[in-house]
């Protein structure tokens, strides 16, 4: 038994090392954001010395009309893009999860290509496309671009939900005389609704936070919050940027936590599995 206890002791030391390393990596992931949030409450104009607690920079946000405009733009783009992408993404998920057809591999590849294509490539190609098509850059082009890059994410999430669904319930509805539309609205949709909601929330976050693609397809006077933060940064680091960043981070946090509630433990695993395999 002595031989058995030695590795066990070693095991504990290596386990503690692993715990320490994991803790440090979590610290690395969260400390930078925490520092930004911390300095947004600094009463001094400095981002180096904390002079005292104050919320005056948040007041400054509300007084700056260009920031408010950017916020409304972000909100409008997010809601519009999410609505369109959620409908299209859900239809796509329905088509892909329950049908075997020629060209399915191509459709699958297209969906995944859209999620992994470097954003700068998507951004410049859309810029070239809009200019060639004679479409003026503005809020509309931003919405079009955001729909294009969020559809795939909605599809992946809803598809994960569909794959865990028992089809016999739908068959029962049809046996009882429901037509396909009734079956969808009364049976399928309520069952996949959590997946649809989670997909919509993720689409909104992606849209709300996007910088690169928006940077290339926005026109004069169609600034979103990330674009506004970027242009403010050109004039140096200020507590106002920290306050604005804190607001954006909190919006994202609330939405992601909301999405993770809709996306139950099983579905979250299902999403990961569906996207991994």
């Amino acid at each position: 038994m002595a031989a058995g206890s030695a590795p066990k002791g070693m095991c504990r030391i290596s386990d503690r090392m692993l715990l320490l390393v994991a803790g440090l990596i979590y610290l690395f992931l969260y400390a930078p954001i925490a520092i930004v949030i911390f300095f947004s409450f600094n009463s001094a104009k400095s981002t180096q010395n904390f002079a005292g607690f104050s919320t005056k920079w948040y007041g400054e946000l509300l007084r700056d009309q260009t920031i408010l405009d950017a916020f409304y733009n972000s909100l409008f783009v997010g809601v519009a893009a999410t609505a369109i992408a959620t409908v299209i993404g859900t239809l796509t998920a329905l088509a892909l999860s329950r049908n075997e057809f020629r060209g399915k591999t191509f459709a699958d590849s297209g969906i995944y290509a859209a999620t992994v294509m470097p954003e700068i490539v998507v951004g410049v190609s859309l810029l070239v496309f809009f200019v060639a098509a004679g479409v003026g850059l503005g809020i509309t082009t931003i919405v079009i671009a955001h729909v294009a890059f969020t559809i795939s994410f909605v599809t992946i999430v809803v598809r994960a939900r569909l794959s865990g669904m028992d089809r016999s319930i739908e068959e029962a509805a049809q046996d009882l005389g429901a037509n396909p539309v009734q079956t969808f609205l009364r049976v399928t949709l309520p069952l996949i609704l959590p997946g649809v909601m989670a997909g919509a929330l993720l689409a909104f976050t992606l849209s709300f936070d996007d910088f690169v693609i928006t940077f290339f397809v926005s026109g004069v006077g169609s600034s979103t919050l990330p674009l506004k933060i970027y242009s403010m940064l050109k004039f140096g680091v200020t507590p106002v940027i920290n306050a604005l960043s804190t607001v954006v981070v909190l919006v994202t946090l609330v939405i992601i936590l909301g999405a993770s509630r809709f996306l139950g433990r099983d579905e979250a695993r299902e999403v990961r599995r569906a996207t991994e395999e």
């Binding site: 954001i33 930004v36 300095f39 936070d209 680091v237 946090l253």
Partner: peptide, 30 residues
């Protein structure tokens, strides 16, 4: 579940702000 969610939260947090955080940390007297 919570540990993996804690990895996903930064993953979904604004890319620009996460880059900006390092400007705050690394700049002159940061």
């Amino acid at each position: 579940t919570i540990l993996i969610l804690m990895v996903m939260v930064p993953f979904w947090t604004s890319f620009l702000i996460r880059a900006y955080a390092w400007v705050v940390i690394l700049n002159g007297n940061g």
